[in-house]
């Protein structure tokens, strides 16, 4: 049920699709660069965080923990727990990447973030290598250059604008989810269940913070398997 598209169109679509992420990542990365500088981390190490780790939430958490004097081993364990959600996301994405040539998967895997996963997994057309490489490459570039810019010049943007661009990433999550939930009752069920579960888990402090997201994703997707009959969308039957 998926449409094939030519190579050049695939690249162009990768560029267009990356715009919201580029705009959202750059100011958040600048904030990371500046914060990192303020707690005394060198320019090189600050950039290395974004170049080699490329995980926003983990990087901010690492700065917090470093400031609090937590040991290297414990920060790495906390990062691992926080990133277990990407294990679920990559597993989910793998269903749609069966035709991608194996070597490319090593690059594509590096680009799996909450945001890029959300956009790619809800893309209706077949996921092809040029689209994925351009899209993931540009979002990575925005994160890395934003970090360096933040370290060098601080935040040139007014605070309110910077926060608003970061909020835009959550707006993007909602703009991806809402139309799907409107079209499909199972999606609405999954989204409502998962959101409510996260609220309950955090409000009553049932699960430690670093486990919450991955636990919510597993439990609510599992509830979907138990309670729902169909796959969420026809188009995804590849």
């Amino acid at each position: 049920m998926t449409e094939q598209e030519p190579f050049s169109k695939s690249i162009k679509r990768g560029m267009i699709t990356s715009v919201p992420l580029i705009l959202g990542y750059f100011p958040v990365a600048m904030a990371f660069g500046l914060l990192s500088k303020n707690i005394g981390i060198s320019m090189r190490d600050t950039n290395f965080f974004s170049i080699f780790v490329f995980a926003g939430a983990s990087q901010f958490m690492a700065l917090d923990l470093l400031k609090a004097g937590i040991s290297t081993g414990n920060i790495i364990i906390a990062t691992f727990l926080l990133n277990l959600r990407h294990l679920m996301m990559s597993a989910s994405l793998s269903v749609r990447l069966k035709k991608i040539k194996r070597p490319w998967l090593f690059f594509i895997a590096f680009g799996v973030t909450d945001e890029s996963f959300s956009v790619t997994s809800l893309t209706k057309t077949e996921l092809r290598t040029p689209f994925l490489l351009v899209f993931y490459g540009l979002t990575y570039f925005s994160w890395v250059t934003g970090t360096a810019a933040g370290y060098l010049v601080g935040t040139i943007l007014p605070t309110a604008l910077q926060s608003s661009l970061g909020i835009g990433l959550y707006g993007m999550f909602m703009a991806l989810l809402a139309p799907e939930a409107k079209k499909s009752l199972p999606v609405l069920f999954l989204a409502a269940f998962s959101g409510l579960l996260y609220v309950i888990i955090s409000y009553f402090n049932i699960i430690p913070p670093s486990w919450r997201l991955v636990a919510t994703i597993i439990l609510s997707s599992g509830a979907g398997v138990l309670f729902l009959k169909d796959e969420p969308k026809e188009e995804e039957k590849i």
Binding site: R85, L122, L177, A181, A191, A192, S194, S221, E231, P232
Partner: peptide, 11 residues
Amino acid sequence: LLYIPYTALSA
């Protein structure tokens, strides 16, 4: 696995 995008986004 196909349910994960929706539950992850909402969470």
